[in-house]
Amino acid sequence: MIKEIDLHNLSLVKELFELQRASYLVEAKLINFFEIPPLKETMEELIKCKELFLGYFEDTKLVGVLSYTIEEEELTICRMIVNPTHFRTGIAQRLLDEVEKNHKELRAFKVSTGKDNTPAKRLYLKNGYKMVGDFEVVPGLYISNFEKTPSKI
């Protein structure tokens, strides 16, 4: 089941915080960079962030999260988090489908991931995202940017 996460629910935020650390540690190893902001973020910073969160639950356990912001008719995916024990089970796909379905009226969807994060890049490319380019955020670390323009029906 997918539902919005209330950042005022402290037990759920604690679960989100721990899930985020486990998931982003895998990405850090993939891209060989351990200073990823979600790995350095405190629980207080997470609670105060201005992102909207969708959670994927199995029974009552949080196993996946997508967070996003919306500005000027553009949705930016900020975080895609999946419990490492649930990788390659379709959770990221379901979260992506849900956010796109709920925001068809927007003119663009954007997302970034580590250049060497092949599983994430594959997910976005197979869903119609086009690579905009890579940019170096710190010496030796490249981020790949993607964008998708939904078709208006």
Results as ranks from 00 to 15, higher is better:
residue 34 F to A: 05
residue 141 L to H: 13
residue 43 M to F: 05
residue 83 N to R: 00
residue 55 G to D: 00
residue 150 P to D: 12
residue 77 I to Q: 07
residue 79 R to H: 01
residue 60 T to H: 09
residue 134 D to E: 13
residue 132 V to N: 09
residue 116 D to W: 06
residue 132 V to H: 04
residue 86 H to Q: 06
residue 4 E to R: 14
residue 64 G to P: 07
residue 11 S to E: 14
residue 40 K to W: 03
residue 94 R to Y: 09
residue 73 E to A: 04
residue 11 S to N: 15
residue 85 T to W: 00
residue 4 E to L: 13
residue 114 G to F: 08
residue 26 V to D: 13
residue 129 Y to C: 09
residue 57 F to T: 00
residue 150 P to M: 11
residue 20 Q to R: 02
residue 29 K to N: 15
residue 22 A to L: 15
residue 138 V to W: 02
residue 88 R to I: 12
residue 103 H to D: 04
residue 61 K to E: 11
residue 85 T to S: 05
residue 14 K to L: 08
residue 9 N to H: 00
residue 112 S to H: 07
residue 121 K to Q: 04
residue 101 K to L: 14
residue 67 S to G: 00
residue 118 T to R: 12
residue 127 N to F: 11
residue 87 F to Y: 15
residue 99 V to Y: 11
residue 38 P to I: 00
residue 60 T to L: 07
residue 72 E to Q: 10
residue 58 E to K: 15
residue 33 F to S: 08
residue 95 L to V: 11
residue 38 P to R: 03
residue 33 F to I: 06
residue 103 H to M: 00
residue 16 L to I: 01
residue 42 T to H: 10
residue 95 L to S: 10
residue 78 C to G: 01
residue 6 D to E: 01
residue 103 H to F: 06
residue 92 A to I: 07
residue 106 L to P: 08
residue 6 D to W: 01
residue 43 M to K: 15
residue 82 V to L: 00
residue 107 R to P: 01
residue 2 I to A: 10
residue 78 C to I: 02
residue 139 P to R: 14
residue 90 G to I: 02
residue 135 F to Q: 09
residue 139 P to N: 11
residue 60 T to P: 00
residue 26 V to G: 11
residue 143 I to H: 05
residue 112 S to G: 02
residue 74 E to S: 09
residue 12 L to T: 02
residue 150 P to V: 13
residue 9 N to D: 01
residue 77 I to M: 06
residue 84 P to C: 00
residue 149 T to M: 15
residue 40 K to P: 02
residue 48 K to M: 08
residue 23 S to C: 09
residue 86 H to F: 07
residue 5 I to E: 00
residue 153 I to G: 15
residue 27 E to L: 05
residue 121 K to C: 05
residue 39 L to D: 01
residue 106 L to C: 05
residue 105 E to W: 09
residue 100 E to R: 12
residue 45 E to N: 14
residue 137 V to P: 04
residue 26 V to S: 12
residue 5 I to S: 01
residue 34 F to Y: 14
residue 141 L to T: 11
residue 18 E to R: 12
residue 57 F to V: 03
residue 62 L to S: 04
residue 120 A to S: 14
residue 86 H to M: 05
residue 65 V to G: 06
residue 138 V to G: 03
residue 8 H to F: 12
residue 47 I to Y: 03
residue 115 K to N: 10
residue 92 A to P: 03
residue 140 G to H: 03
residue 8 H to N: 15
residue 37 P to D: 12
residue 20 Q to L: 05
residue 38 P to K: 03
residue 65 V to D: 08
residue 120 A to R: 06
residue 13 V to Q: 04
residue 80 M to H: 06
residue 35 E to F: 02
residue 79 R to Y: 06
residue 115 K to P: 06
residue 103 H to S: 05
residue 21 R to Q: 15
residue 102 N to Q: 15
residue 72 E to L: 10
residue 71 E to K: 13
residue 126 K to W: 07
residue 21 R to M: 08
residue 105 E to P: 07
residue 140 G to K: 04
residue 54 L to M: 04
residue 73 E to H: 02
residue 37 P to S: 09
residue 119 P to T: 00
residue 73 E to N: 08
residue 79 R to T: 02
residue 101 K to A: 14
residue 130 K to H: 11
residue 150 P to G: 12
residue 51 E to R: 04
residue 75 L to Q: 02
residue 136 E to D: 04
residue 95 L to K: 10
residue 83 N to K: 00
residue 35 E to W: 01
residue 86 H to V: 00
residue 78 C to N: 12
